[in-house]
């Protein structure tokens, strides 16, 4: 059929073409791989880092932020406090759905500016109905609208957190003070936690966040609001870079109706304890057994 020489020649041509095609096809892959640093790829899990290694990583992250975003930031890794267990309550009787909390979160936590990302999603609900099926999140009329009430939803920091259970690499866990955190340097981006969360509390970085340097909040935490890398999952941490220093979360301070109450569940004199003991309190989707630390209550 074909002479040996022709066959060899065809093979050589085919092989060369193939190699060329392979080199071309692999180009973006190589480009991606060459941008990775060995240090970064081999970095160990948060819980395995010695304090020295951690401070080195923090300085590195600060330098990276400067190089990439042009902002001088300070990143800390503040451990939890003994005798502190955070709880959060939200008064549905007074919330007006203005989304100021979502905005404060957006600013505080260095969210991507293009997508208006925020860890808080506010549902406009029908008065007299508890069916989220009839809720709406992208309302744009003046609020509060007649016949509506508003239910902001954010991470409930569940004590029996489905997201923590499903993570195959322990990249997300519950801290001693009750906050569920993500090690952005360990997450593999499988998004199983996003599928598992019943509260739509988790967000994935579909691209690297875009924030102008002058809008970056320089006060950052390793486990909370430092600018996240692309390809990992993030979530509300009750602003732990603030709350672990004794400060209130940003969403609470921004609320114009005082609907939010935050504090230490282990302190019997705390505001949050008073609410839990004296108000009509419920948790969202209690039937799922997630045991949230985020409570809704009504004025009575």
């Amino acid at each position: 059929m074909s002479s040996p020489t022709r066959r060899v020649a065809l093979k050589v041509v085919g092989g060369t073409l193939g190699a060329g095609a392979f080199a071309y096809a692999a180009r973006p892959f190589v480009q991606w791989a060459s941008a990775l640093s060995v240090d970064e790829v081999l970095r160990r899990h948060y819980k395995e880092l010695t304090p020295d290694e951690m401070s080195q990583i923090l300085r590195q992250l600060e330098a990276d932020t400067k190089a990439r975003y042009g902002a001088d930031v300070h990143i800390e890794d503040l451990p939890p406090q003994e005798g502190v267990s955070f709880g959060y309550a939200l008064n549905l009787s007074v919330c007006i759905g203005c989304r100021k909390c979502a905005e404060a979160c957006h600013v505080e936590n260095n969210h991507d500016r293009r997508t208006n990302n925020s860890y808080i999603r506010v549902l406009e609900m029908d008065q007299g109905s508890f069916d989220m099926e009839r809720g709406q999140v992208d309302y744009d009329h003046a609020v509060p609208a007649p016949g509506k009430y508003y239910m902001p939803v954010q991470c409930h920091q569940c004590d029996n957190a489905p997201c923590v259970k499903v993570c195959p690499v322990e990249a997300t866990w519950k801290e001693p003070d009750g906050v569920v955190v993500v090690d952005y340097n360990w997450c593999i981006g499988c998004r199983y936690c996003e599928a598992a969360c019943p509260y739509h509390a988790r967000r994935f970085n579909w691209q690297a966040p875009e924030i102008p340097a002058d809008q970056i909040n320089p006060d950052q935490g390793y486990l909370s609001n430092r600018i996240r890398p692309k390809g990992v999952v993030e979530k509300c941490t009750f602003c732990l870079h603030r709350t672990r220093r004794g400060q209130l979360p940003a969403c609470l301070e921004a609320c114009p109706t005082g609907a939010r109450v935050f504090g230490n569940l282990l302190d019997p004199d705390s505001e949050i304890r008073w609410v839990l003991e004296h108000k009509r309190v419920y948790v969202l989707k209690e039937e799922l057994g997630t045991r949230p630390r985020f409570f809704y209550f009504f004025d009575v």
């Binding site: 989304r99 208006n116 709406q136 992208d138 609020v143 509060p144 109706t257």
Partner: peptide, 30 residues
Amino acid sequence: CHDPHQPAFQPSVPVLPPRDRGVLQGRGAR
């Protein structure tokens, strides 16, 4: 928070409308 002469909250335009993927793609949330 309250205007003493008109203490009820007056309607205001909400801030930061959701603009995440899905909404951006024009197949947005209801």
